[in-house]
């Protein structure tokens, strides 16, 4: 099999303060094939956005990649100089962000900001207008003359999508792209991203805490917990029969259509902070299945195209079968 479009292996990202270093992402691995839609899901503080930003070379100054590798089309991004990395951004790897309201320069017209992105990929006005039309604007030339404050949140996020895709990148990174939007706008934007990714053959890495977003958009999902990927696999299979107690807990805590439960489950406790991380399973303090064994480093169990890090997959499966009966 040829090399995937993006391959992140054992990524460690740390906050380095003077001589001390505190990892916030610790051994995350995932890969994305061309045109594939991959979701990275987890609670706040699990390191999912940081993983996403490191692939873009856009980590805040306080964070640094301290170990592992990020390969894009065979070249090692962590070893690439700042200038070469900059050239990849835009035409090769583009990004959309969580806050459409603040992610556009308030003083520049939409046209000026789109032109910059298009110019990076040698695209012109025709491509810009075409892309604005594709993201659903009825009157693209008018949008070009407007400034961000004249547009709603949903419109701005569609502008961001147009700006990211106008250069036809091979990979789109989306950091919680629908979190700041109204629920009705959320599904429009997700559908739009799905359709465009399909039509333009753009791979998407979407970061979200929302399983319904993952279900709508992604083919493959990686579940992150406390800086590690604890479970990976095809979305349908992972969400139907999770192989990690954390994924199960996430599912139980989300409402779904036809829900007959009187109350939603919640996961007790909070995500351990990086200074509490050790060799053992990091979910054990909140896990209903935890035993003493969980203080040992959990094994990575792989089966077909699924993988998870847990000592007690058999017990989890038994519980699921029990519940189904």
């Amino acid at each position: 099999m040829s090399e995937p479009l993006l391959k992140i292996q054992n990524l460690q990202v740390s906050a380095t303060r003077s001589s001390a270093k505190l990892p916030v992402v610790d051994g995350a691995s995932l890969s994305i094939e061309r045109g594939e839609r991959v979701a990275l899901v987890g609670e706040s503080g699990s390191g999912k956005s940081v993983t996403c930003f490191s692939a873009m070379g856009l980590l805040p100054e306080s964070l640094q990649v301290t170990d592992g590798s990020i390969r894009y089309q065979g070249s090692e991004l962590t070893a690439l100089g700042a200038e070469k990395l900059r050239r990849l951004r835009g035409p090769e790897i583009a990004m959309i962000y969580q806050e459409p309201l603040t992610s556009l320069n308030p003083l520049l017209t939409i046209g000026a900001q789109l032109k910059e992105a298009a110019g990076r990929a040698k695209a012109g006005r025709r491509e810009i207008l075409e892309m604005l039309d594709r993201v659903g604007f009825a009157d693209p030339p008018r949008i070009l003359r407007q400034r961000p404050h004249e547009l709603s949140g949903g419109m701005r996020q569609r502008v961001m999508i147009a700006m990211a895709l106008v250069g036809r990148p091979k990979l789109l990174l989306a950091d919680e792209p629908t979190t700041a939007l109204d629920v009705t706008i959320q599904s429009q934007v997700l559908k739009l991203m799905y359709d465009l990714s399909y039509d333009l053959d753009t791979a998407v890495l979407i970061v979200s805490h929302d399983l319904s977003v993952v279900r709508k958009l992604a083919d493959t999902v990686h579940v992150m917990y406390a800086g590690q990927v604890v479970e990976s696999g095809p979305v349908k299979e992972v969400l139907a029969t999770p192989r990690h107690p954390y994924t199960q807990a996430l599912l139980d805590s989300a409402p779904h259509m036809g829900d007959t439960r009187d109350r939603l489950e919640s996961i007790p406790g909070i995500v351990p902070t990086p200074d509490q991380w050790d060799q053992g399973c990091r979910f054990r303090s909140r896990c209903p299945l935890a035993t003493e064994q969980c203080e040992q480093r959990p094994p990575k169990v792989e089966e077909d195209d699924r993988a998870s890090m847990c000592w007690h997959i058999d017990r989890l499966v038994a519980r699921q079968q029990e519940a189904a009966v």
Binding site: R89, P91, Y97, E99, S103, L104, P106, E116, R120, M163
Partner: peptide, 26 residues
């Protein structure tokens, strides 16, 4: 430190353009 500066960097603009156009204008 604003989000739109991150967007400008994300577009792969040169540092000079990010600082003197996007930031200084504001």
């Amino acid at each position: 430190s604003q989000d739109y500066i991150r967007t400008a960097r994300g577009k792969g603009l040169r540092q000079r353009v990010v600082v003197y156009k996007h930031a200084l204008l504001n």
